[in-house]
Nucleic acid binder design. Structure first.
Length: 234
DNA sequence: CCTGCGATGGCCT
DNA sequence: GGCCATCGCAGGA
C-alpha cells in the first residue's frame, strides 16, 4: 500500500517533457532518475539543472539552430537523452525538452543517491575511495560516471527505454528552488547572465552555490517587471 | 577556504 | 588549430 509521503514511481509522460527547457528545468528538481546497470539499479534525486534554448541562446550547442552531427539529438522529440563528451574525458546528460525540430534541452548538473544501495553502486563506478559521498554526483561529469552514462546513451528514449528513465518522484516546491547563472559559459555574451540554472536550496549535492541566487518566485516576479531575462544588473 | 593547471579527445571552422 | 555545459590535484592563505 502506497504511503502518502512516498515519492511516486510513475514514469513521466511525453506531455510533461515537451513543455520547453525553461519551464521544465525547475520541474525536474526532486524527480527520480533511474538507471539499470550491470551492477544493479541506481535511483537518484535530481537536485540541479540548467536550461539551454535554441535558437537565440548563445550558450547552447544548437545556437542559431546549428545542426551538426553532435547537435542533431537536441532537435529530436522531447524525452530523449542528449549526451556529449566534454573536455575529452567526461560526459554530460541532458533531457531534450521540446518538439521535434526545436532544440531545447535541460542539463542534469547534480543528483543525490536515494539509498545506501544506490550509493554503493555509484561509488564503484566512480572509483571513489573516500566516504565523501557528495563527490559521487555533485557535478554533471561526476553523475554520468557514477551512473555509467556515456555517449552510447545519446539519443536514448527516456520515455520508453528500459535502461534509463525518469519517475515523478516528489517535485520541489518553488520556495525551495534557487535560480542562478549557468556554469562555465562566459562566451555566451548576454546569455551568460541569465538565471537559467536551478537548484534545490540547501541540498549538499548541488555543485556550485551562488550567493547571488534568487528564489524562483522572485525570478518570476522580475520577469513580469522587466518583460525579459535582462534584469538590468550589468 | 581559495586559485591555477593539466588531462584528453571530439567537435567545428 | 582552438575550443570546451569538467574534474582532481597541488599549493597557498
Amino acid at each position: 500500500m502506497k504511503q502518502g509521503n512516498e515519492p511516486s514511481q510513475a514514469r513521466l509522460p511525453l506531455s510533461w517533457f515537451r513543455q520547453g527547457a525553461l519551464p521544465l528545468a525547475p520541474q525536474l528538481l526532486g524527480r527520480t532518475i533511474v538507471r539499470v546497470t550491470d551492477e544493479g539499479v541506481i535511483r537518484a534525486r535530481i537536485v540541479e539543472t540548467e536550461s539551454y534554448v535554441a535558437p537565440h541562446d548563445k550558450g547552447c550547442h544548437a545556437y542559431n539552430n546549428r545542426r551538426t552531427k553532435r547537435t542533431e539529438t537536441m532537435f529530436q522529440r522531447a524525452g530523449h537523452a542528449y549526451v556529449y563528451l566534454i573536455y575529452g574525458m567526461y560526459h554530460c546528460l541532458n533531457v531534450v525538452a521540446a518538439e521535434e525540430g526545436q532544440a531545447e534541452a535541460v542539463l542534469i548538473r547534480a543528483v543525490a543517491p536515494l539509498t545506501e544501495c544506490d550509493e554503493s553502486i555509484m561509488k564503484r563506478y566512480r572509483s571513489l575511495s573516500s566516504n565523501k559521498f557528495v563527490n559521487l554526483s555533485n557535478g554533471p561529469g561526476k553523475l554520468c560516471r557514477a551512473m555509467h552514462i556515456d555517449k552510447s546513451f545519446d539519443g536514448y528514449d527516456m520515455i520508453a527505454g528500459e535502461e534509463m528513465w525518469l519517475e515523478a518522484g516528489k517535485p520541489v516546491m518553488p520556495e525551495h528552488i534557487l535560480c542562478a547563472t549557468r556554469i562555465n559559459i562566459p562566451y555566451a555574451e548576454e546569455y551568460a547572465d541569465v538565471l537559467w540554472r536551478f537548484y534545490v536550496a540547501d541540498d549538499p549535492y548541488v555543485s556550485v552555490k551562488d550567493k547571488q541566487a534568487v528564489s524562483l518566485a522572485v525570478r518570476e516576479r522580475m520577469l513580469e517587471t522587466f518583460g525579459s531575462e535582462d534584469f538590468g544588473w550589468n
